[in-house]
Amino acid sequence: MPRNENWTEAQPIVALHDVHKSFGTFEVLKGIDIEVMKGEVVCIIGPSGSGKSTLIRTINGLTPVSKGSVKVEGIEVHDAKLDKLALRRKVGIVFQQYNLFPHRTVLENVMMAPLLVLKENRSEVEARARTLLEKVKLRDKEDAYPAELSGGQQQRVAIARSLCMRPDVMLFDEVTAALDPETVKEVLMTIKDLATDGMTCMLVTHEMGFAREISDRVYFTDAGRIVESGPPAQIFDAPQDPRTQEFLSKVL
């Protein structure tokens, strides 16, 4: 992405303004406004089908918006002239289903994008990949294939794979939803370490305890709108909107 000279860290690193998205005649996002500052951790919660995945996918351009603006570091993501590849260096995403490359080893999975996309030097990338695998505690699995790993391990590889592109923002879409309860924790720990290191994170999650613990701000979405947002203590302990109250009473 072209460096935006006008953007400073005093401004939001991710800014969604009046974002609408329709699939055919079905409007999934009905005007979303979110601003995230550098280093912030933001959680998006809400009932199934409320548009959380769609919302998070608009931020790295995987899903185009119908109307409104999405800016990362001050640059419009949905500008037709924008170099999409460059955007994706800035924004990493991790999915619910890990989506590793099954024909590549763990180490290769992590190294592939920097080598192919950034055309970086192999030995540098390899060193960085190993450091990241160390960080997600999978150094001993670097030669394994994804199908030989547990879900939690695969998800940590997916996180390392994203991080190896050295993004400025990380998006997580229900990354623990497909995991066994025991392995959920190891993935959450990894994300928490990342947040502690100052990475800007946006998470869609059903792990309310985790959302409360980790986030600076929580957004509650319902039917394509942000119903309520605020610091976690406020959202979880004193929700204002009846829809938030109802949702939380079901999941807590």
């Binding site: 790295n60 995987l62 999409k84 590849l85 460059a86 994706r88 260096r89 990493g92 995403i93 999915f95 289903q97 989506n99 590793l100 490359f101 099954p102 592939m112 994008a113 192919l116 996309v117 950034l118 997916a158 794979r161 994203s162 592109m165």
Partner: peptide, 19 residues
């Protein structure tokens, strides 16, 4: 979803097909 993961890592369409 596998191709989408590659796309989100910045792979070009051609790179996704080949790799």
């Amino acid at each position: 979803s596998t191709k989408e993961a590659a796309e989100s890592l910045g792979f070009s369409g051609f790179q996704i097909f080949v790799y």
